[in-house]
């Protein structure tokens, strides 16, 4: 056994997984409340990554930042969260709300249109080139934990820790606050919640804001750790985030976190070992295959996911 490689893949998987978990949370929350698959969610993440990149450039770039690094990072994440939050609210208001009573397929097609519009708008304004955060200049790659085979760059720790902190914050919000209770009630039965005096529209708007803000933060974190961003990046993260949400049990918050980590680890290890296992026939590009098989497996064997409850159809 090559322990160095295994530990490295573990770290990679956890980093990737915490990003997927953040994306999955947004999917899961929106699906829980509206029963709507927000196909534009990945593109919100992409916009977040671009906002972070813009803030970074505005404050002097990675080589010569005009403020302390930790302030810079905080500002990038906060700006992306705010920008994406409002983007999410706008998407809900203009693309989904007019279609609440439409046939199921209509909001999905609308979501497809939104995703396509955002992607191509960014392409129109910023071009198809990959942009880099140059985060190796921002934080030296040697800074971090070095302990036996364990070598973790500090930025990766920051990414994992902030993802974890956001998930904890969300957990507290959903379980302990009035808004959280309103959200759970709306997810359980929208009409009954409305009759109990909950302003359902406002709850939905807030859900979209929170979910999209998390995706925006995830976008910045992706840019920091994996370096380059472009207009098409949201697609892959959206798919994996959705897979994570399904695996964990759609609508469940711990499920989304767990599913995210699981998918992240699966992807990291399949990137690392798929060549060995298939005797060199399949390259690391085929790691998506493994994630896809996990998705299909869960859909066939346990469609409600790990933490989900079985959906009882009522007539």
């Amino acid at each position: 056994m090559d322990w160095d490689k295994i530990v490295q893949l573990l770290v990679n998987g956890l980093t990737l997984g915490s990003v997927y978990a953040l994306v999955a949370l947004g999917f899961s929350m929106v699906y829980g409340i509206l029963k709507l698959l927000n196909l534009a969610h990945g593109d919100v993440l992409m916009v977040g990554a671009f906002i972070g990149w813009g803030v970074l450039g505005w404050l002097g770039g990675a080589q010569d930042p005009s403020v302390a690094v930790w302030i810079l990072l905080t500002l990038m994440v906060l700006a992306a969260m705010a920008g994406c939050g409002f983007l999410g609210v706008a998407i809900e208001r203009f693309a989904y709300r007019p279609l609440r009573r439409a046939p199921r397929i209509a909001p999905l097609i609308s979501a497809l249109g939104v995703s396509f519009f955002i992607q191509n708008s960014v392409l129109l304004l910023f071009g198809a080139n990959f942009r880099s955060y140059e985060s190796f200049d921002l934080v030296d790659v040697e800074v971090g934990i070095h302990w036996g085979p364990l070598n973790v760059w500090i930025l990766r720790i920051v990414v994992m820790a902030s993802a974890l902190a956001m998930m904890l914050g969300l957990w507290i919000l959903v379980t302990r606050t009035k808004l959280g209770r309103a959200m759970r009630a709306t997810a359980f039965d929208r009409e009954a919640a409305a009759m109990m005096g909950i302003d359902v529209d406002r709850v939905i708007v807030k859900t979209f804001f929170i979910g999209s803000a998390l995706a925006g933060a995830a976008g910045v974190l992706v840019g920091l750790v994996f370096g380059s961003i472009n207009h098409f990046m949201g697609f892959g993260y959206g798919l994996k985030g959705f897979t994570a949400a399904v695996v964990g049990g759609i609508g469940s918050i711990p499920g989304a976190m767990f599913g995210g980590i699981l998918i992240g680890l699966a992807e990291a290890f399949s990137v690392g070992y798929i060549e060995d296992v298939t005797f060199g026939r399949l390259g690391s590009a085929f790691s998506d295959l493994v994630v896809f098989l996990i998705l299909i497996g869960f859909m066939l064997l346990r469609p409600q996911g790990i933490f989900g409850k079985k959906d009882v159809k009522k007539v």
Binding site: F94, A95, A102, A106, P107, L112, G113, V114, F117, S121
Partner: peptide, 15 residues
């Protein structure tokens, strides 16, 4: 860009 906008507008106004 226009096709994306078209899809959203169609769904909202003339599904």
């Amino acid at each position: 860009v226009l096709i994306g906008a078209l899809l959203v507008a169609l769904m909202a106004f003339r599904p």
